[in-house]
Nucleic acid binder design. Structure first.
Lengths: 190, 190
DNA sequence: TAATTAATTAGATATTTGCCTAATTAATTC
DNA sequence: GAATTAATTAGGCAAATATCTAATTAATTA
């Protein structure tokens, strides 16, 4: 569900020095000044890194008198690691992705503006996409004589024989004694 | 031990589109072309991302006829997630870090070139570092009369009284009947 | 064999971001 | 209260990198 955060989490850890900070804080708390000396960076740079880490909840600061003692939030680290192991995490990342885009692109590539086929795809994968589009013109439960099938297919391409044969071959239409009908849906992708 | 890899792993996942690729491949295999359409990027860009992901072993390609079908290496993902949960991973990251740098910097900041103290640190944290440095001049098992203690401390700063008092206060020296000696080591840091 | 197509690689551009210096804020000491 | 100090913030520069177009490679079809 809550996909946000995962990317920020990885970005926070995708830097050598920030990773070292995490490693250091795993052992004890450090001040900005100490981290700067140990990692040979300016305090302002350390501050910047700590701010990024704290933004995703991986570290927190605790004022100790004059100093800011930074400490690792191991709970958050474990939480994220466990999230990576969960089956639900990865699918959630693509919740808002346009999965139909490829099919649309293939259809667009092979279609003229008025919806006819420029050519019949040679690639099985793309042929399948085109055929599944065409087959939407057939209604379930109706038996179509071959002549009527050709009439429908002619809207897409002159070579109705090939289209007809492939529709049957791919299992989208069924045929018996010169009549055709829509096959039961099978989650077949190609 | 083998720290390398962790950083590359995070870097590989620290990009929105690569994360989406991982999310998509978690559900089924995809070709470069498909991913390009779905993510609205050029195939060359997808190729580049897949190359980075494959370099850290997160995805692999399998030639299916004409196409290159990319698939997620879930084993690697799980392996890395589990590594994050291991107690040994984080300390290993800082194996090659110069932990003494801070102490050295503090000593340098407060010392003149010939090793005397410019001032006695006001901050307890830094005073402790300086005192621990000075106390190295005392040998274990020997009882020093106060006059001798002052002699040693005078090498560092004229205010021997303060140094002496703080050494005792911080528990680095012990005192009884006008004699001083090195305290037993206690893993005290400040 | 020639033409098409999926994928990769090379090269260029633009964005991101790590790091610095300088300025500012907040807390502490003299 | 003035001076010092730890930390953060702001602004700028340089290195890394995400993306694109163009060229190349490898496989397939006509």
């Amino acid at each position: 569900m809550d996909n946000s955060g995962l990317l920020d989490f990885f970005k926070a850890l995708a830097d050598a020095n920030r990773l070292k900070i995490i490693g250091l804080l795993a052992q004890e708390s450090f001040t900005v000044e100490q981290l700067a000396a140990v990692l040979k960076l300016r305090p302002s740079t350390i501050s910047h890194h700590l701010s990024r880490l704290s933004k995703v909840g991986l570290v927190s600061a605790r004022a100790e008198g004059y100093y800011n003692l930074y400490q690792l939030e191991t709970v958050m680290l474990e939480k994220m690691a466990r999230r990576l192991l969960s089956k639900k995490t990865l699918p959630a990342i693509v919740a808002d992705v346009d999965l139909e885009a490829y099919d649309r692109k293939v259809l667009a590539d092979f279609s003229t503006p008025d919806g006819r086929l420029k050519t019949i795809p040679a690639r099985r994968k793309k042929l399948m996409i085109v055929l599944r589009h065409i087959v939407k013109d057939f209604k379930p439960g109706i038996r179509y004589p071959e002549m009527q099938v050709n009439q429908i297919l002619a809207e897409y391409h002159q070579d109705t024989a090939t289209l007809r044969r492939e529709l049957v071959g791919f299992g989208l239409l069924e045929r018996e004694r010169g009549e055709y009908w829509l096959a039961e849906k099978v989650g077949n992708k190609g």
